[in-house]
Amino acid sequence: MTNREEKINSTQYIEEIVRAVSIKKMIYDQQEKLINSVIIGFKTFLNSKKWLIYLLLAFMWIPVIIIVEDYDLQIEKPDEAFVDAMLDGLFPTIFIFGCLLLSLPLSADEISDHSIDLYLVRPIKREVYWLSRWIVVNVVVYCVNLIIYFFYYIFVHAFAEDGVFAGIEKNLPVFGKVAIILLLATLIYSGCFLLVGMIGNRGLLLSFMLAIFEVFLIDFFFLGDSLYIPQNNIYEIANDLLPDHVDFDTPDDLELLNAWIYVIIFPIVVFFAGAFYLRMREIK
């Protein structure tokens, strides 16, 4: 038997593990677990294939845009067409369902296949596990959408009236600003759907209801003018970032600074609510 084997599970070994450690050591220890959990999260996501369904849904939007906007594949102002298709087309519809779909492999699916049981009986803090899932969901929702948005950016410029790819470089700042709005929307919605998905099977239903509400029912419940609806705050920022391209109806008393504070605070609140929920959650 080697020295390590002689030591393992001895009283001294157990005491070493059980004894309280310095915060610095604990952070270093949990940092390693976080990285491991993030890698598992990315692998889980990539293997779930739900991102493929989302990509398919998003690209199906192309013929809809062509038909509805009657572009006839001769796009006069590709930058306007791009912003219109993304912020007025994809964002309020498919993006919301995308956040729901892309967060499922890391929330409801992990609960239903019981892999969460195995992760949480390992020496990773529940908050750290939640952080890992939060990071992965935000990164994947943003990256997958950025790919879609970039594809649309290329697409509209490919059919520019002034020639193939005319203005593609000049319009890059517009793409950049749309990417910023996308980032804000990602931080708000993906964390939200991740948290609701963590409830489990009922969470799946709740997530779906939340998506339906956000996409279709806000106006029905006369909440279109509410300052606390994420969409309104995002649109207020979009109006400011892209004044030449969009002019969304936002509540009259919504100020730009408050909109920025809202979109920064909202994901932080959701993150801590999620960490608290997972700390208290029982894995039955």
């Binding site: 599970n9 157990i14 593990i17 059980v18 450690v21 604990m26 598992i40 692998k43 889980t44 293997n47 779930s48 992990e110 296949d113 019981h114 892999s115 049981d117 195995l118 009986v121 390992r122 020496p123 990773i124 803090k125 529940r126």
Partner: peptide, 21 residues
């Protein structure tokens, strides 16, 4: 206490596998 979980192994009754692994 997550630290003591360094010392335990758990065999669940149900299948607990990520489908892709």
């Amino acid at each position: 206490n997550s630290r003591i979980k360094q010392l335990i192994g758990y065999i669940p009754e149900v299948e607990a596998f990520p489908k892709w692994m």
